[in-house]
Design a protein around this nucleic acid. Sequence first.
DNA 1: TCAATCCGTATC
DNA 2: ATACGGATTGAC
Length: 650
Amino acid sequence: MRTAKRTAAREPAAQLPVARIAVDVPLAHLDRPFDYLLAEEQAAVAVPGCRVRVRFAGRLVSGYLLDRAQASEHGGRLAYVERIVSPEPVLAPEIATLARAAADRWAGTFADVVRLAVPPRHAAAEAVATPQARPTPAPPDLTSLDDYDGGAQFIRALVNGESPRAALTALPGDWPGTVAAAATTTLASGRGVVVVVPDHRDVARVASKLGENAIALTADLGPAERYRRFLAVRRGAARCVVGTRAAVWAPVADLGLIVVWDDGDDLHAEPRAPYCHARDVAVLRAHHARAGLLLAGFARSVEGESLVQRGWLRSLEPATAARARALPAVRASGDDEDLARDPVARAARLPSLAWQAARDALAAGAPVLVQVPRRGYVVSLACAGCRAPARCNRCAGPLTRANAGATPACRWCGHNAADWACPYCAATATRAAVVGAARTAEELGRAFPGVTVRTSGGDTVLPDVPAKPALVVATPGAEPSVPGGYGAALLLDGWVLLARADLRAAEEALRRWLGAAALVRPGPEGGRVVVVAPGELRAVQALVRWRPEWLAARELDERSALRLPPAVRMAALTGTPGAIADLLATAQLPEVTETLGPVPSGGEQERMLVRVPRRDGNALAAALKAALAVRSARKADEAVKVELDPVVVI
DNA sequence: TCAATCCGTATC
DNA sequence: ATACGGATTGAC
């Protein structure tokens, strides 16, 4: 009775009374717009993109108004929009279209994607007026892309208002300046820019180059500040956004360029459903918006190389002269024969090449970067001869030493392994399999008496260090910058990175090495890099020759041969065996679909991989989405996690 | 014959 | 999810 009376009291708006609403419900089978009526008094504020509350299946839910129409296709009665939460059109039409495309591409729901794209509302921030947009900046007074073959053309295209697309492998030096040059050029052409970088330190670096022109969007801002800056962008007051992965959705109008720095970094992969990757969203958005795209980094991801080989991106590589000017001298030092004769350097696991490079750099008054694979102290032991993990011969648990000099013992069963011998090479000596930054710092301190040793990694990341003699021990990604560059970099225990049982091990190892090596001063100024890993390995060769494109191309060839992504489109299905079987039985997968697995995935869970040729990728996503919808309508109790193009495949 | 409960279906 | 309708069951 009451509802009937209330409904009767409302009058539909005279103009465009039908509102198409995307409701925020998590169910795959409800992932489509629903029509509602707008009351006359709501008509003025009900703008496309605004937040609403509607009654849906009896309860109040949030939603976004997508657009308005004069009439509805829906046969039944329409309910009224309960409330216009705010007239702020937070969901820009362009972003709504992009979110729909992304949801389809990753077999997810519109609601899930929009949750990534639009930050939660903060009413107080909304109430504050946004300052007016700044005038278009003067053309850039920054380093340009002249050091790269085709770089000048790329910049010229941006100046001319065109939308060039490229993958750039950056030289050591001022990468934030390079990114800022492309951004400022685009701004000067009267268009907007989005720059996406892995973490907030990188945001600060790029933002400082862009100064007043840019607005920084990171997840670590509080809700109020985050929403305030988002609104500044949406209201058109900021035309250039620099941020972490969610910034790829920033509603910059009239987008001219998207830059993604270091797209191989895992931080670009969204951990929330539907697990989209900022690089791939950038590709999608550049396509939709007809914007330019720059994938730049010291490394080249296999995905970036794939886009190059498909002709979608142009490859921008350093010109020969610029290489000679900017690259440090890189050498590999593979085996223990090469270990320094000095007993203290030996104890610190330093090959003579590395020791020499460090001594020379320190003598020249420069700091030395020492990259170690992982944080932590001694973890477990490996065979000193062949480096196979040392395992207990009773229970196969990992061997460890309680303290330096103690005999090895099993960490699982406690068995004393003093008589251990390697089952592969019969060696009886063990060595630390992974030596963390702290232990390395200790050992280096002894090898270089009187030299300051600093560590950066884990909880204590040093942003920068002074240009004075010091040993700077850092884990990958936590390398401090230094004015003028390091005199040398030692990349220790390279084999640990390469030994990861992961499809991306080689690519990832090179990416991390390049990240450290790029902080070293140029070869002509004495800059040297020594990587402690077997010189015959592809990733090591790619580093020594500084040819990341070459490794990416080789890795891509291999993935094509093995039919692995990005040569094919793949989905990982994780859940109980029954749930996965049900999903696969329900899904009308393309004829060509291959299934791999299952493999155990912890607990009761299994993981199954399905793959199709690239051209069938959309059909695969659509089929999986449809099957998820059927299962969600059926109230299937056990969920299956569906990830398209998972970052970690094996 | 009626109520309590179950199952399936739609959600505007 | 949640709400609703129709079928189904069980006790009088």
